[in-house]
Structure formats: structure tokens, C-alpha cells
Simulated scan of single mutants.
Amino acid sequence: MDSNFSIYTTSLTLESLDITPSNIFPAFIFGTLTYCAILVFNMTVLLTIALNRKLHKPMYVLLFNLPLNDMMGASAFFPQLVASMLSQNRSITYSACFVQALLIHLYGAGTFLTLTAMAYDRYVAICCPLKYNTLMSPNNLLKIIIIMWILNFTLISLLLALNYRKEICRTQIVDIFCNNPSLMKLVCEDTQANNYYGLFVMTFFDGLSLLIVVFTYIQILITVVVKRQSDARSKAIQTCGTHLIVFLCFEFNTFFAFIAHRFETASPSLRRALGASAVIFPPILNPLIYGLKTKEIRENFIFFFHKVFPRNQKNKLSGVKN
């Protein structure tokens, strides 16, 4: 029989990173630089949207939530990871583990909700252009954002709260970071209610988001084909193609990562790789994809860069003349 451990006095042990001593410092540098790059990329998108009035439109106001969300997820994952690399200590307190799991799940659910809201915005813009200013008015936009975050905090907080126990039977986390499935495996008592609620939350965020995105994009495709307008078609491809790729990549990554936790036969290495990739790659790729592929953001960023560093540009020009 497993012994009981108090969560207030017991440290948990995260899964080993399996890094050889000679590679610890390079891995630490790489992880630190990756985290810094995520912060710089996402802050650039945030500042570009915030400081340019031309981008104060519903589509970009919704997009503003994505880098905020990505930085939250990255900040929950990377500092603890690189600190444990340097100290070669994979222990973590239960409270810190709980907070990390909460923030990472808020990040995952927030990504689904933000991308779903952006799909709805594109649907209204392309399929109901005459109603766009009414449906996506500042008041309605504010309501959408508030509902998004309230849903996120409520459902995810309850998900993690169901696993919070005074006593646990195990201290080994089966992932390289803390998440709800790993915390659930520490619990001594019956976790059937946790399983059912976890499936509901996964279905709500993954399933409902997928249904809404698929429906809106089918409607967009039908509208573009019916109108037979080249400008409408190019607008749909430009504004929706990138968003759809980002959404589907995140959807399938998180789906298989959660499914892998439900099957004991799933490869632990594959499960860890899928879980980590869902936290590492989107915060890096999202600002690059939206910054490079979205014409208005790209142009306003270049304008903002020249406005902030005018002297450097003049010095370069004078140097060339000399």
C-alpha cells in the first residue's frame, strides 16, 4: 500500500530531462535564449498593435490576447525548466507544481478561445460585412473578451481544484512539467469525477472550438465561391489561411498530448515530447507567423521601427554617403 504524504511538506520530483553533464550548460543557454526570444517576439506584436491606431480593430484587438497568453504559458514553463537544468535538481514543491499546472492549462484553453473568437471575427467580416460594425462593436468586442477569460479561469480553476488534496500517495510527476493528468496520478482517492470533468473540459475547449472554426471556415469558403470575386477570395486566403494553420497545429498537438495520458501503452517519450511542444512552439511561431504573414502588422511594425530608431537610419545613410 502506498504511503500518504502531506502536500504541505512533501516535494515532488519531475521527470528527468536525460541531459548528459557535458550538455547541461548548452541546454541551459539554449532554453534561456528561447525564452528571451519568445518574450521579445510577443512583446513586439503587442507594442505594434497597442501603439498603432490603425490596428485598433476587432481582429487585432482579439489577436492582442494571443501574445499575452503565449507569454503566460512560456513563463510558466521555461524559468522552472532552465533553473532545474542549472541546479540539476528536478524537485518542485506541490504548491509551485499546482501553480505551474494552472498557468499552463490557462494558456492552452486561452489559445483555443482566442483562436475561436478570431475565427468568428473573420466569419462576420467576410460573410456578413454589412453587419460587421454592429456585431463587432466595441461593446460586443469587450463582452467577447471578458466571456473568454471568465470561461477560461472558471473551467480551468475548477479542473485543478478537483485534484487539490491534503494528502497524496505518490511524489513522482510523469512529465517534465506539471499538468493536470500528472497531478491526478498522485491522488490516493478515487479520481473518477476528475476524469469525467477533465473529459468535459477537453471536449469543450478542443471539440467546441474545432466545430466553430470548421463551421465558420466552411461558411467563408461558400461565401467566397458564391461571390466569385477575386478580391474577396484573396482577402479570405490572406486573413484566414494563416489562422487556420495555427489553429489546426495547436488543436492536434494538444489533442494527442492529452490522449497519450489516457493510455498506459503510450510511449512516455512521445507523451513528454507532445506535451512540451505544445508549450514551446506556439509561443515562438505565433508572433512570427502573424507578424510576417499579416500585411498590416508587418507594415506597421516597419513604420514603428523606423520611428523609434530614426537616428540610426540617418547615421547609416550619412555613413554610406561618406
Results as ranks from 00 to 15, higher is better:
Thr10Met: 07
Leu12Asp: 04
Thr13Leu: 14
Thr20Tyr: 01
Phe25Ser: 14
Ile29Phe: 04
Gly31Trp: 00
Gly31Asp: 03
Thr32Tyr: 07
Ala37Phe: 08
Met43Phe: 09
Leu46Ser: 11
Leu47Asn: 13
Thr48Tyr: 00
Ile49Asp: 02
Leu51Gln: 15
Asn52Lys: 06
Asn52Ala: 06
Lys57Ile: 09
Asn69Gln: 08
Asp70Trp: 00
Met72Gln: 08
Gly73Ala: 03
Ala76Leu: 06
Ser87Trp: 08
Asn89Leu: 08
Arg90Ala: 09
Tyr94Phe: 13
Ser95Ile: 10
Ser95Thr: 13
Leu103Val: 07
Tyr107Trp: 01
Gly110Tyr: 03
Phe112Ala: 10
Leu113Pro: 03
Met118Trp: 01
Asp121Gly: 08
Cys128Asn: 12
Leu130Trp: 14
Asn133Ala: 06
Leu135Met: 11
Ile144Thr: 10
Ile145Leu: 05
Met148Ile: 08
Trp149Tyr: 13
Ile150Thr: 09
Phe153Gln: 00
Leu158Lys: 01
Leu160Arg: 01
Ile168Glu: 12
Gln172Lys: 15
Ile173Glu: 03
Asp175Leu: 13
Asn179Cys: 11
Pro181Ser: 09
Leu183Ala: 10
Leu186Ile: 08
Thr191Trp: 05
Ala193Asn: 11
Asn194Pro: 02
Asn195Glu: 10
Tyr196Asp: 08
Tyr197Arg: 00
Met202Ala: 15
Phe205Pro: 01
Leu211Asn: 11
Ile212Ala: 11
Phe215Lys: 11
Thr223Asn: 12
Arg228Ala: 07
Arg233Val: 01
Ile237Glu: 02
Thr239Lys: 11
His243Ser: 09
Ile245Phe: 14
Cys249Phe: 07
Phe252Glu: 10
Phe255Gln: 10
Ala257Val: 01
Arg262Tyr: 11
Leu270Ala: 05
Leu274Tyr: 02
Ala276Val: 08
Asn286Trp: 00
Leu288Trp: 06
Leu292Lys: 02
Lys293Val: 12
Phe303Met: 13
Phe304Asp: 08
Lys307Tyr: 10
Lys307Met: 12
Val320Trp: 13
Val320Ile: 14
